[in-house]
Design a protein around this nucleic acid. Sequence first.
DNA 1: CAGCATCCGGATGGATACTG
DNA 2: CAGTATCCATCCGGATGCTG
Lengths: 134, 134
Amino acid sequence: MVTMTAGQRRSAEQAAYDAFLATCPAREVLGVISDKWTGLVVVALLPGPRRYSELRREIAGVSQKMLTQTLRSLERDGMVTRTVTAGVPVRVDYELTPLGERLGGVLRAVKAFAEANIAEITAARAAYDARADD
Amino acid sequence: MVTMTAGQRRSAEQAAYDAFLATCPAREVLGVISDKWTGLVVVALLPGPRRYSELRREIAGVSQKMLTQTLRSLERDGMVTRTVTAGVPVRVDYELTPLGERLGGVLRAVKAFAEANIAEITAARAAYDARADD
DNA sequence: CAGCATCCGGATGGATACTG
DNA sequence: CAGTATCCATCCGGATGCTG
């Protein structure tokens, strides 16, 4: 197909890319942990189960919408379980599944890398920005 | 200040949250790898240096704007070096720094987790979505 | 208490055209 | 070849008000 238009070529590339992404577990998981709040929630749940309101308090700055959305997403991915205890008032507990705890392990690795290298990263940024200020 | 308004309380929480984020290396790094393309670029550079056009070809689906933006960001964070070789045509090579290679190591851990658990995640999603379809 | 529904501003990211 | 500049659609995420 030498006569493919630019648009057709892009579509083809896009399709190939989509297929790649669909079969790329790493990107799938990257999508999971790259959410703004997912990491914080998983880390907050590592010590043990937490109630909705406890999570809101522990993760300062999260809106209720985002917390709910994040928890639903984690629940869907099999990372947390949601347990409703009827009564007044209602009580809802969230807890990591074994899968969620393994994800927590990965996040700890990220955290370890972060703490070991943040100084170097910050320095690199400062140096880069200083050049830009010329 | 018992007479704080809801708005003031939120501002206070926001400030506390921002301060927390600013001093939280893990979130900083999470921000780095959570970019849509950063992971792919770092992984593509792991085997060795690559030219701009090579990266465009290897990472199917990336727009030139996003590739440039991602590379600039990685350069700023000290993860890659950018080497320009004058001439016609111009040649630009990107290469991981030691810091970038260490980040690559973390990404490999993510990848390993992903590949080991993707089946479970997919199954959990299917089960969750099946319930939603009721 | 633990949400859901709605609105809305800003950031994200793709398409396109042009340049040293 | 390796970008820069601009425009524009979409989505993310916060604010607000209401509910079982």
